[in-house]
Design a protein around this nucleic acid. Structure first.
Length: 314
DNA sequence: AATAGACCCAACCGCGGTCTG
DNA sequence: GCAGACCGCGGTTGGGTCTAT
């Protein structure tokens, strides 16, 4: 099916001029791009439609962020590359305002080299130095996390919108006895926070180790100096309250809400937590409609039972 | 100051998937 | 079901810029 533009004669190739950019932007702003094939003629450009599309999507589009990648963005690219491989467009969907082309270039010119220098295979994301036990532990932890995230990736949009989902009720449960609430119908939710959230958020040595090994700074959570005491998870009338009561070394009590925890972590935690949410205590799978943001929690609550409260003492 | 090599990134190419008649 | 048109993706290229000698 000869459809490559290469055979089309008389069309310009190579770098775009300011004037060409102006024509393309002006046309799309007024008419939208419509058919890319028809666009260049209508816009008065001596280019093939494909070239116009590339120029627009990778450079001229108004919602593109250019310039240096942040540490968080770098970290996200590395994580997602470990999961998805060279699926740049899929990776780009997790990095708002960055194009797949830009991410691909950044990976090839910066991140790949950096991982190689650190002794990490940029394809498998595994350490090449097996004798380095510290790194080996890190790799194990990374692998476990990535597996969890991979499961999440198979459930579209759960992770990417998780911050929004956690903006739910924030009533403190400090005055409530942790043992006065009914036993949870779904212990996995509880286990998720107890076993994953806390270990990750409070284990500073692991965080520091991760930072040292990857040269990527992960901000310590607000729980870092605290001793967790009571964990309270309450679902009531469609809203989730998720708090962790902690004591600092000085004895000062604090209550940390889920949204605070989430904001200081990254999608690893989200992935794990969300993954645990989709199975209940009896290993029954919960097949909610995870594609729909609005239905996410309602589906979870439907399955788990609304007006439930979970609590525990550490 | 001149040159060579390394680096960076916008742009191109070819392929595969989807749509349409 | 088939063929052509179109679009999007990932790999690659090539020219401009930077850096070391």
């Amino acid at each position: 099916m000869g459809r490559s533009p290469s055979f089309e004669k008389g069309l310009k190739k190579g770098p775009w001029t300011t004037e060409e950019d102006r024509k393309l932007v002006a046309y799309i702003e007024e008419h939208g791009h419509g058919s890319w094939r028809a666009l260049p003629i209508k816009a008065g450009l001596q280019r093939c439609g494909k070239s116009c599309r590339l120029r627009w999507t990778n450079y001229l589009r108004p919602d593109i962020k250019r310039g240096k990648f942040s540490l968080q963005e770098e970290q996200t690219i590395i994580q997602l590359h470990a999961l998805l491989g060279n699926r740049w467009s899929a990776i780009a969907t997790h990095l708002p305002k960055r194009t797949d082309n830009e991410i691909k270039n950044y990976w090839n010119t910066h991140l790949k080299k950096r991982l190689t220098k650190m002794g990490i295979d940029p394809i498998t994301h595994k350490s090449r130095t097996a004798v380095n036990t510290n790194l080996s532990h890190m790799t194990q932890w990374e692998n476990a996390r990535l597996e969890a995230e991979a499961r999440l990736v198979r459930v579209p949009r759960v992770s990417s919108n998780f911050h929004q989902r956690f903006h739910y009720g924030s009533t403190s449960l400090l005055n409530k006895s942790p043992l006065s609430v009914p036993q949870p119908p779904c212990l996995d939710v509880h286990t998720a926070w107890q076993g994953i959230t806390l270990s990750k958020l409070t284990d500073l040595s692991r965080l520091e180790s991760f930072n040292n090994q990857t040269n990527v700074a992960v901000e310590p959570s607000p729980l870092k100096d605290m001793k967790p005491e009571n964990h309270n998870l309450k679902m009531s009338n469609g809203s989730l309250t998720n708090t962790l009561e902690c004591a600092k070394d000085d004895g000062v009590q604090n209550t940390v809400e889920a949204s605070d925890m989430i904001y200081h972590e990254d999608d690893y935690l989200v992935a794990d937590f969300a993954n645990h949410l989709v199975t209940d205590g009896s290993n029954r799978s919960i097949d909610g409609d995870f594609d729909d943001d609005n239905n996410y929690w309602s589906n979870i609550l439907d399955k788990l039972g609304n007006n439930s409260s979970f609590s525990s003492i550490f």
